[in-house]
């Protein structure tokens, strides 16, 4: 073996060690990361809008990075349509069911459940990817749909909560006049 071959050989041994450590790290961080995501998303305390908009950005970035990986090239070609339709569903339902909003709740269970479902599908899809199962179009469509519904629901529930506050504030005013 020449210099270049030997250099590549030795570097690859270190590469295997670093990639192995990265695999272990990525397996460990996914649990606390999910906890941090659920708690940031579901909490109604403090300035929730900024936090939820940023969480929505995180979900979009992670989902698009995962779906655009070369492994899924050519799979689930109706991604944009699925995402847009599910996003609209996610935004419309909480706004239409504004009567169900409870202002005294400190956390939003629906958002936490949707984030949990999103995370669960991501983990299942990753497990299938690692085990070498070919073709997971159905699961990918499901993942895209949940991503769209979650992102829409983040905007929808936040807007519905603010609108409900406005309605509650304006009701006594209307009653007094």
């Amino acid at each position: 073996m020449g210099f270049l071959g030997t250099y590549g050989y030795i570097l690859s041994i270190f590469g295997i060690i670093f990639l192995g450590l990265a695999i272990l790290l990525s397996l460990f961080v996914i649990i606390p990361a999910s906890y941090w995501l659920f708690s940031s998303l579901s909490s109604n305390r403090g300035p929730a809008v900024f936090r939820r908009l940023f969480a929505m950005l995180v979900i979009i970035l992670v989902s698009s990075s995962y779906l655009n990986s070369p492994t899924f090239y050519g799979m689930a070609q109706w991604r944009k349509t699925t995402l847009i339709c599910s996003f609209i569903v996610g935004i419309v339902i909480p706004v239409l069911r504004i009567d169900l909003v409870q202002l005294d709740r400190l956390s939003d269970r629906i958002l936490a459940s949707l984030a949990g479902l999103w995370w669960l599908i991501l983990v299942i899809s990753e497990a299938l990817l690692v085990s070498g199962v070919e073709g997971q179009s159905v699961l990918l469509y499901f993942f895209i749909a949940v991503t769209g519904i979650l992102c829409g629901a983040i905007l929808g529930t936040t807007a519905a909560r603010i609108a409900k506050q406005k309605l509650v504030q304006s009701e006594p005013e209307a009653g007094s006049s």
Binding site: I23, S26, I30, A33, S69
Partner: peptide, 10 residues
Amino acid sequence: TVVKTNLLLA
């Protein structure tokens, strides 16, 4: 893909 996605998420 898995490592990239999980580390990006974290």
